[in-house]
Computed example of a mutant assay.
Amino acid sequence: MALNRYLLHVSYIGTNFHGAQRQVVGTFPRKDDPSTVQGQLEIALKQLNSCNEPIIALSSRTDSGVHALNTTCHVDLFRANGLHYEPRTITLCLNKYFKKHEVPIRILKTFIVPNDFHCQHKAVSRTYLYRLGVINANALNLAPHLHLLPIEELQRCHFLCTDTFDGEKFKLNAKLFEGLHDFRTFMGRGSHELHKMTRRLVHRAEVLDGKSLLYGPYSWPSVMPGTCQDYKFYDVYVQATGFLYRQVRRMVASLIAVAQGKVSSSDIKLMLEVPSHRSWNDKIKTVPAHGLYLCEVEYSKRDRAAFRDSLDS
């Protein structure tokens, strides 16, 4: 039997998962863990009837409630006849299982990769998106706005109801995070561990005007005229070589605090220049997970050249 390694491109809605990484630990045979993305992937892979127990390696570990538009993982599979599984067969088999069992995971693409390829260690960058919806609290009464949150956006976007939000400050201050910085202050936990490497190179930190996921003539705000202009959407993109625990959510929270006038640009600079858990400004509240999406895990051109999407390629 020959070992064959496969790279899976995966998307999922993280609302009901307890994170991407499996939580149930133990010795062989491992117990199933349907509460995590990794656990569900391993359960689905058993449908292929490989000679080995499929064990997924994740490229990125997202928290509970975080979504993924396109992330990656790899798995080694042994087939009795020593041949490869056709990548398309793996994609179709897993998606058929997820659809049947109503699991919010989809396989976008499967590749055959070299046996020494590692989806986490070979990644050159990761890109996250945070979706923010700002509600103008002064436009109408506060209660109607809170009641009119569109169902299409439920657990897909973080909504902030405020009468003080400077969109230009929100956009301009994002650039403070670009470059090589020590992000220890922005760690959700572990900032006391002095041995931990907390320097990260941020290639991109950018805020763009966003839009709602609303669609169709019968959806909000079509049936609620006069409210659309009171909702402003922003997309915050952050691309880096890697991230610390809750780093992106704390970065976005800092930008929101600046836009609301709770902290200044100098406060953000201080947290970057004096990396410590003591430097975190208590006026800043970490934004919730449901607005965060892992968009892409990138690999070098050289590694991508070795990916095979069929047995004939």
Rank of each mutant, 00 (worst) to 15 (best):
2 A>H: 06
5 R>A: 06
7 L>R: 09
11 S>K: 13
13 I>A: 11
14 G>E: 00
15 T>H: 09
17 F>G: 11
17 F>D: 04
18 H>M: 09
19 G>M: 01
22 R>G: 12
27 T>C: 11
29 P>R: 10
30 R>W: 03
35 S>F: 08
43 I>G: 04
45 L>C: 03
47 Q>L: 06
47 Q>H: 15
49 N>A: 15
51 C>P: 00
53 E>H: 13
55 I>E: 15
57 A>G: 06
57 A>E: 13
58 L>P: 00
61 R>T: 00
65 G>R: 14
66 V>C: 10
69 L>H: 13
70 N>W: 01
70 N>T: 02
73 C>A: 14
77 L>W: 00
80 A>P: 00
83 L>E: 11
92 L>Q: 11
95 N>C: 14
96 K>R: 15
99 K>Y: 12
102 E>W: 15
112 I>T: 05
115 N>F: 11
119 C>Y: 03
119 C>T: 11
120 Q>L: 08
121 H>S: 13
123 A>G: 09
127 T>M: 08
133 G>H: 05
134 V>G: 13
135 I>M: 07
136 N>C: 09
139 A>P: 08
139 A>W: 13
142 L>P: 03
146 L>Q: 10
148 L>I: 09
148 L>C: 12
149 L>P: 01
150 P>F: 02
150 P>D: 02
159 F>L: 10
170 F>I: 02
172 L>C: 11
176 L>W: 08
187 M>L: 15
192 H>G: 04
196 K>E: 13
201 L>T: 09
204 R>K: 14
210 G>H: 02
214 L>H: 15
217 P>G: 12
217 P>W: 10
219 S>W: 03
219 S>K: 13
221 P>S: 05
223 V>L: 14
223 V>Q: 06
225 P>H: 12
226 G>M: 07
229 Q>P: 03
238 V>T: 01
250 R>T: 03
252 V>G: 06
254 S>K: 08
259 A>N: 08
261 G>N: 02
262 K>E: 03
264 S>W: 02
267 D>R: 10
270 L>S: 05
271 M>I: 03
276 S>W: 05
277 H>L: 04
277 H>D: 07
278 R>Q: 11
280 W>I: 07
280 W>E: 01
283 K>E: 09
285 K>F: 12
286 T>A: 14
296 E>Q: 12
302 R>M: 09
303 D>A: 12
306 A>S: 07
306 A>V: 10
309 D>M: 07
309 D>H: 01
312 D>S: 14
